[in-house]
Design a protein around this nucleic acid. Sequence first.
DNA 1: ATAGTCTGTTACCGATCGGTAACATTGCTG
DNA 2: CAGCAATGTTACCGATCGGTAACAGACTAT
Lengths: 213, 213
Amino acid sequence: MNSEKSGISRGGEQPTSITCTPGGKSRVRDRIFETACDLFYRHGIHGVGVDAIAAEAGSNKMSFYRSFESKDALVTAYLREQEREYWAWWDTAVARFPDNPRRQVEALFEAQLEIAKSTHCRGCALGNAAVEISDDEDVLSNLVRAYKEQVRNRLHAMAHAMGAHDAAGLGDALMLLLDGGYFTRLVFPLGSGPISAALPAVRAVIDAYLAAD
Amino acid sequence: MNSEKSGISRGGEQPTSITCTPGGKSRVRDRIFETACDLFYRHGIHGVGVDAIAAEAGSNKMSFYRSFESKDALVTAYLREQEREYWAWWDTAVARFPDNPRRQVEALFEAQLEIAKSTHCRGCALGNAAVEISDDEDVLSNLVRAYKEQVRNRLHAMAHAMGAHDAAGLGDALMLLLDGGYFTRLVFPLGSGPISAALPAVRAVIDAYLAAD
DNA sequence: ATAGTCTGTTACCGATCGGTAACATTGCTG
DNA sequence: CAGCAATGTTACCGATCGGTAACAGACTAT
């Protein structure tokens, strides 16, 4: 694989004129971490090296290892952060309809479609990580598994709150549509992919599971 | 006839045909290629090196480079082979119901569930590759994109043959369910994942799109 | 001014990566 | 048997990987 990562520009030498704020602790660590999250998401975990991360953050490898124990530790922190942001996004999308689980699910898929329209979207960070990490990497794979199980549980709970006669089945069906949207988004650019059909499908599935037995 | 000479044959893309001696003995190239397909699928493209592939095939790196121009060429051949096998699987699943598109779609998801139950299943090889390769790797990403577009087109055609009032929408909804099954299979072991709920969801979606406007 | 903390810089380490040269060995075939 | 193609073996190359040591400078606090 000798394709040059054109997305990673060898960082220019900026004088870093940021004056250290009184409360500013380790701003280098934050810069590096944000850069790492961005690069990991865009190019995959195995596709980005420590050196590239530090350089893109306007720093260097030594400063990186002063803030992070190892690349593994950084990857773990990356996945945790992605999970944190994901649930924050989820809760926000759902919060508008506190007592209407059906409307909550629809809002979730509406929000997903909105994100999928942005240029930088590359699907689900946690799910993508599952492709790259092998099963024997316990910490990482357990983290991803726990995340996916929580997605499943939340959808299950919402389906139950709707009064579905088979809440587990409806929850799983919704999860397939959700993850299908993330997975296809990797290949189909912007708003042209099948994810645009998610909402009608969601409504159809919900209707079917809410209908009398 | 088309066997690679020791010279540098640049630009010719070998179709990865299986070459055997008249006695039927498997050649080194085939052993290496099968091993590579297995390892790429299990550990990801970036997670397996040329040395590991050759060693696992009982050969060595030098013999590898006598059969393949580069690792990139091997990866391309791998994706082409995965696509070839995928369509063969698809056609087989569909062939039993030549004039019943709805039954064909159901058979497709039944076959997917069957495969998902096997231990070695790690979802969709082509889709997983999309996570690892970056957009500027034209050959690979175009290959994956063409594959996904064909999946979409075939599902669209089936939905149209069913007489759906929104064939594109139904096809996309089916694709989300299909890819959702592949994506979730990466994390949930064996038959415990949400993919078990695919078939009822498929039937519900089809019913909804076949119902009167 | 002094001390201490944080950061940048350079150089280096062992391992592994993709890839190649040179030679030894096997095995088939005329 | 000879000849030849396919394969195995060893050693090597430059680049990059994750990770570290040592030193120089900038900044803050006292």
